[in-house]
Design a binder for these strands. Sequence first.
DNA 1: TCGCATAACTAATTATATTAGTTATATCCC
DNA 2: GGGATATAACTAATATAATTAGTTATGCGA
Lengths: 192, 192
Amino acid sequence: MATHAGIDKSAVVRAAAKIADDKGWDALRLADVAAKLRIRPPSLYNHIGGMSGLRRELGLMAARELGVALARATVGKSRDDAVRGLAAEYRAFVKRHPGIYAATMIAPSRNDAEMKTAGDEVINTCLAVLSGYGFRGDDGIHAVRAMRSAVHGFCALESAGGFGIPLDADKSFKWLVDALVVGLAARARSRS
Amino acid sequence: MATHAGIDKSAVVRAAAKIADDKGWDALRLADVAAKLRIRPPSLYNHIGGMSGLRRELGLMAARELGVALARATVGKSRDDAVRGLAAEYRAFVKRHPGIYAATMIAPSRNDAEMKTAGDEVINTCLAVLSGYGFRGDDGIHAVRAMRSAVHGFCALESAGGFGIPLDADKSFKWLVDALVVGLAARARSRS
DNA sequence: TCGCATAACTAATTATATTAGTTATATCCC
DNA sequence: GGGATATAACTAATATAATTAGTTATGCGA
């Protein structure tokens, strides 16, 4: 019998991420993860806290990777440039990792510090990008929520096949981002 | 033995909708639907096509109700007024029916005419609202996608508990819609 | 009233996650 | 090198859900 196959938490999470990205967040099965690692399902419990623990790990991984990607995509840019860079990378990330991106939508439990940190990383990059417009305090939060709503909404609809008509989604995204930067700039000018 | 309890498809779907809205889309269980109707789970199969058929029914119901609500909320309005009315009602619908709203995100299968019709109803109301800005053809589609992205994105994030900081979501939504109408107006002015 | 279609039922099967209890092995310490 | 220990695998069993097969009862129409 094969024992001690050299599997650790990271290997389990990576295998699960691949399956989630390939077959969809809802189609993730412990049996498939175990099969990919050539072990039996109960053995997974040595590394992760069951299905719910695994889901959290995937959400954490996705939030962290998204945070890094967004930071990298916006470094050295400001205002419209930064917003365009962030939006483009956000969408690229969702296309690259549709399964684990969905994992970032699970509500983090109250005292999950790691998850909170990873989420804050994303928010802070958004705040930094928007600070170029002069948003401060509450206005900055509103602006972040607006930008995230627009970009997340587009990616979610696109990922769910919500754009029935076969009209170029790239063009639509550019259209959205154009409208977004105009809206942000206008809001910045008229801010209280 | 109680037989012929007077249950039909509509009763099953309504019971399921209530459960989905109360406990969440992912927490929907045939066992709970059956219990609420005081019948055994297999009896549900006389009325709906199993779990996947039920999910489709819920998506259809939600799309139809959303379509009606949006049409009602925008009748007699134009431009910014219409956009604000549509956005407000969209969000109100998601708050009222978080469970079945999630059902509208399942990808409709290719030849599902009913689902397509229900979806088109929503799109057409959006198109009508945006026609006031003079968008035509492709531009109208881009505008609809942008508006839906913004509003759906906000509702999805809010519904998922994605707004960690306890800053008034109503204010954030108003901020978003303000930015949206500005962006739409600007896009309308500069359209090709 | 008879017969049929319908809608309920029970029983069994499949799929999946999870727990309990056991065994094997890699590593650490001597 | 050789044994103790922690780890990580295993098998077996259980729980929850959905689903299918096969059966029974009821209400309506001819």
